[in-house]
Design a protein around this nucleic acid. Structure first.
Lengths: 199, 199
DNA sequence: CCCGAGTGAGACATGAATATCTCACATGGT
DNA sequence: ACCATGTGAGATATTCATGTCTCACTCGGG
């Protein structure tokens, strides 16, 4: 019996479609989640003890994806600006899930947040700090705020894309350009080229 | 009998404390909302037919506050950059309520959103568009995205302040500086002074 | 061919939040 | 002192999502 492996595959598929659905409708019912995954409510409950367990599993998935994105982006290599670009590009596919977890976190209110997020927060803050120390980034905005702002922009962009307000293909460029360059037009030097989307 | 005027005052007070509570705990129960306002469930129900009506009233309040802030900020006067600073400063007191409504809007999913938001969106987008046409702002980010990003940064900042991650006094500066100037350090010209908080 | 694991469909109970109602009490005006 | 209005507290009903259970079905392996 290879049921354990089959379960794992199914579980992952359920998790993915749940993430996709809850991204759009964060109050979706367990029945809706099940139908979205193409299974019945009973089977969904066989995979996840309850809604809480499902959200926890989604949180674990989000953390794992974020850490994978951080790994792929190599945040401590090269210019900090390029590292930020790599990071946003790598995390873009998970932006919807991130936005869901981001707002869901507000509901955990009293409880301590998963330490996985703390680790990720610190790695991202380290990236901004590195950019400040190298002179690339301004030093009058704290790394903690820049990290928080990155999350906020990712969530905003994911939502704006879902609403059809902006084109999906512009996602990474919009987030990165606003985060790094801001709204103000560059006056002193020629604007940096920003068409390259990755690498 | 002046009960109609008294009701109005009470209703506003209830609305304010409900906004303050739901800003912190968006899933607060009707009973918690009532207690936070210092009244009983029954009285709360006498003011608002149900939770839905309460949220609608909060939405109306948020829209009114936003329009008042827009009015006070005079977005079409002077340099666009200064207008953005005035706008963020004027809207700061309502950032928590805005963040709550911003996430709550995702639940209205299918329904059309209140046209009040559309009006506000357009006025803010017009401000960014004006800055682009005057040459102050870069033109490679759409006004719609800049508007969306402003909402996201306001919500992020409100949440970060509530979590104690950043100091409340830095709120406006953080949002404005990141939105306008971005993370990147200015190289060509000396960084613009940004200590003036208002006017 | 048979057996069993996994599944879907549905019944059923539980719990939470909501919505409605009643009743006693306090307060303010006459 | 009396009365009316608004209120708080509690009881009750309803709704809805959740969690648990049963049972029949199917598909794949032995």
């Amino acid at each position: 019996m290879v049921y354990s492996r089959l379960m794992a595959v199914d579980r992952d598929h359920v998790l993915r479609s749940a993430a996709a659905l809850l991204t759009r409708k964060s109050t979706a019912t367990m029945d809706e989640v099940a139908r979205a995954a193409g299974i019945s409510r009973a089977t969904l409950h066989r995979h996840f003890a309850g809604r809480d367990a499902l959200v926890r599993a989604l949180e674990a998935l989000g953390i794992a994806e974020c850490e994978a994105a951080l790994e792929a982006a190599r945040p401590e290599e090269g210019p900090a600006e390029d590292a930020v670009r790599r990071l946003v590009a790598a995390v873009e596919p998970q932006a919807g899930l991130l936005a869901f977890l981001y707002s869901e976190n507000q509901l955990f209110e009293g409880e301590e947040q998963n330490e996985g997020w703390t680790r990720i927060d610190e790695r991202i803050a380290d990236l901004f700090r590195r950019g400040q120390e190298s002179g690339e980034f301004r030093i009058d905005l704290t790394p903690a705020w820049l990290t928080e702002a990155l999350y906020g922009l990712l969530a905003s962009a994911a939502w704006a894309v879902a609403e059809g307000r902006v084109a999906p293909k512009d996602f990474t460029r919009m987030v990165v350009e606003l985060l790094l360059g801001g709204t103000r037009r560059r006056t002193g030097s020629a604007p940096r080229e920003h068409q390259r989307n990755e690498s």
